[in-house]
Computed example of a mutant assay.
Amino acid sequence: MIQDSVFTRIIRREIPAAIVYEDDQVIAFMDAGQVNPGHVLVATRRQVETLVELEEAEVAHLFAVAHRVARAVQAAFTPEGMTLLQTNRPAGWQTVPHVHVHVLPRHANDGADLVWPRQDPSLEVLRGYAQRIRL
């Protein structure tokens, strides 16, 4: 049996949270570790670790709510920018094994950074990658 995530415990009201929105599929609440004021997490109610385990309709609803939350955060906090971030598994920077999207208001020089080593493969290599995943 999968151990309950902290988000599942929030959904069950076992842990207090500042809830922004909820429906039968998702819940949105303030991130306890605010990077900037207005930092919200939008999580599935169903505990699933990664995005690829969800059905397409579930992903669509998750991101539709994240979009609504982003618009509300923009109106309430007027940030200079916005980062929506969804991560999968520890190697992909996921820290809670429960699908969620960060809605993170951003400001110049706010200290939040997203860095990775850029590689510049040739167009031939890129076409090979594309062939492997072509839908």
Rank of each mutant, 00 (worst) to 15 (best):
A130Y: 09
V73A: 10
R45H: 09
Q34S: 05
T95A: 13
R89V: 06
E22M: 01
A72D: 05
E80T: 01
M30C: 09
N109P: 03
N88M: 01
P37M: 02
L114M: 10
I15Y: 14
L135H: 12
P117C: 05
A76G: 14
E49D: 13
M30L: 14
A72Q: 12
R132G: 11
V40R: 07
V101E: 02
E124L: 04
E49F: 00
P105L: 00
L114D: 02
V40M: 07
V69K: 08
P117L: 12
L51W: 03
M1I: 01
A43D: 08
Q34I: 06
A64G: 08
V52I: 13
P97A: 08
E55I: 03
R71N: 10
Q94K: 10
Q86Y: 00
R68F: 00
V115D: 13
R134Y: 06
R46P: 02
L41T: 00
R71A: 15
I11K: 08
F29L: 00
L54M: 12
R71P: 00
G92A: 00
R13I: 01
A66W: 06
V115N: 11
I27P: 00
E55Q: 15
I10G: 09
P90K: 12
P117R: 14
R12F: 03
V65M: 11
H67D: 12
E14V: 10
T95P: 02
D31N: 15
I133D: 03
R71S: 10
A28Q: 09
H39K: 11
I19H: 11
F7S: 01
G128R: 15
A130F: 07
V99F: 04
P105F: 03
I19S: 11
A28C: 08
R127D: 11
H107N: 06
P105T: 00
R13Y: 06
I133A: 06
W93Y: 14
R134T: 04
P37A: 12
L114A: 04
H102R: 07
A28H: 10
L51A: 03
I2E: 14
E14T: 11
R12L: 08
L114E: 02
H39P: 05
L126A: 08
R71Q: 15
M82K: 03
Q86S: 02
D113G: 15
D31V: 01
V59P: 06
W116G: 11
Q119P: 02
L54S: 06
E22G: 04
I10M: 09
N88I: 01
N109Q: 15
Q94A: 02
D24E: 15
Q119M: 12
P105M: 00
E55R: 13
Q94L: 04
F7M: 01
G92E: 02
N36C: 03
I27Y: 06
V48Q: 14
P37E: 08
H61K: 09
E22K: 12
A64E: 15
V26T: 15
F29C: 01
G111Q: 07
N109F: 12
A75F: 01
I19M: 10
A64P: 03
V52S: 14
R132Y: 05
F77N: 00
M82R: 01
V48C: 09
P97S: 06
L85N: 05
V73G: 09
T78I: 00
E49M: 04
R45W: 08
V40K: 06
R118Q: 07
L84R: 06
L114Y: 15
F7I: 14
R132C: 00
G128W: 08
E124M: 00
